[in-house]
Design a protein around this nucleic acid. Sequence first.
DNA 1: CGTTTTCTTGAATCAACTCAATACGAGTGG
DNA 2: CCACTCGTATTGAGTTGATTCAAGAAAACG
Lengths: 244, 244
Amino acid sequence: MLQQSGSHSCQSCQVRHLSILSRMSTERLGQIAQDFNPSVITFGGQDTIYYQGDSARYAYTVRSGFVKLLSILPNGRTHIVRVLHTGDLLGFEGIVGGKYAHTAMALTKVDVCRFALSELMALKQNYAEVDGMLTQRWIQSLTKAEDMLVELGAKKTGERLGAFLVRWCESAPKGIEGWVPLPLSRAEVGELLGMTVETVSRALSEWKRQGLFQERGGFIRLPDVERLCATVCNISRSEVLNVG
Amino acid sequence: MLQQSGSHSCQSCQVRHLSILSRMSTERLGQIAQDFNPSVITFGGQDTIYYQGDSARYAYTVRSGFVKLLSILPNGRTHIVRVLHTGDLLGFEGIVGGKYAHTAMALTKVDVCRFALSELMALKQNYAEVDGMLTQRWIQSLTKAEDMLVELGAKKTGERLGAFLVRWCESAPKGIEGWVPLPLSRAEVGELLGMTVETVSRALSEWKRQGLFQERGGFIRLPDVERLCATVCNISRSEVLNVG
DNA sequence: CGTTTTCTTGAATCAACTCAATACGAGTGG
DNA sequence: CCACTCGTATTGAGTTGATTCAAGAAAACG
């Protein structure tokens, strides 16, 4: 499934406040209309948005749904590098080296806004607001990647899974009554956190039994975050997340 | 040990070609002299350049020597996030959030060029060459961090160590006859790759016996990279433990 | 409804860790 | 120069956390 619904107007975009254009005034937005021609495209779950190594012509912003970025090793193993949702930018790394660094795959039905990298670069040069947002995004992605690196390098499986769940529930778009969508299979969680399906399943089952974790049709809930953190490594929430 | 040798001239800088100013013409360089006032500072091995969480006023470029960036977890464990050498930029993340994300520590005697973040940001705004270089650096660090993430998430200890050695020998400044400086203790290699001192030591000793790895006073050499890779990827128990 | 995929659970195995002891090397001071 | 220390590296033995292999149970799908 792949559906293209033509060019949209940035002015009327519902998720612009989450995008790299969030700092732009409405009048400035009008100016860019001629040089910036994004398309809105819809992908179905499991669809590939682009492939690792493909020559990169476009970058994308997620309008709705979830996307995973994965790195495929020569030996066939795959690792999920990042999971993206509304407002996140992907494919931008193409401006250095000209190739996509990962394969981007839709985890759910996904709406993206697609635009040429060349147009984005022009925008960055001519509009300080865009340049500032891009800078901010990179530093944030770098910080996030490095945080993950520390997770993988210095923590045990249980701690990693616990920290992941807590962070996910805090950052993902919330549903009702604390139920948060988690469009990842056990296997995918494993690929993200560097552990096997079985290990993920065992830990989640155990926490379910202890009333620390609930799940219903693709949504999850953590009834007692403090206690989960304590159980996982006998430390507080802030320590699990490594925040001051 | 900390020694400040006052402001230097970018024009006469020996390592400018490796820095974020590499793309600037000599005449353009003259223009920035009034607004850009870097200092050259020397640190001794083990000195801390800045601390994780400190409010960030400066960024630095490594002129010579090696620097480690480390993340310290609440439970006391530390993880080395990156090792930097000549030409690398550090501390730049301070422009978002205003704090350093890591502790930067000198592994050897180190010369850095220090400049105010505010000055760097002004430079970035006024000179497209600098902006371009920063962008490039940023994407490269992100790509590197994500590569490391995959290493930690999807590979076993031997594979990680092997890959690290090969990469190090390819990217570090070379000495004579293939001897490359490695200013990291076994413990530090472990902190970088998420394994214990003992595991690092065991693998290196084994490879030494097999003639795949040599070491002399802080310098290392890989006589047969191909065979090392072959050995590392066939993770047979008898080979690793040398039994049978 | 059966079929397929995903999830769970158990048992056995193994890689990597911890603990512990020894060896090496650099530096210090008698 | 040797004995002493201190930090680092090596090596061994035992333990354990996580994996692999395998078999059921539960969802999801057409």
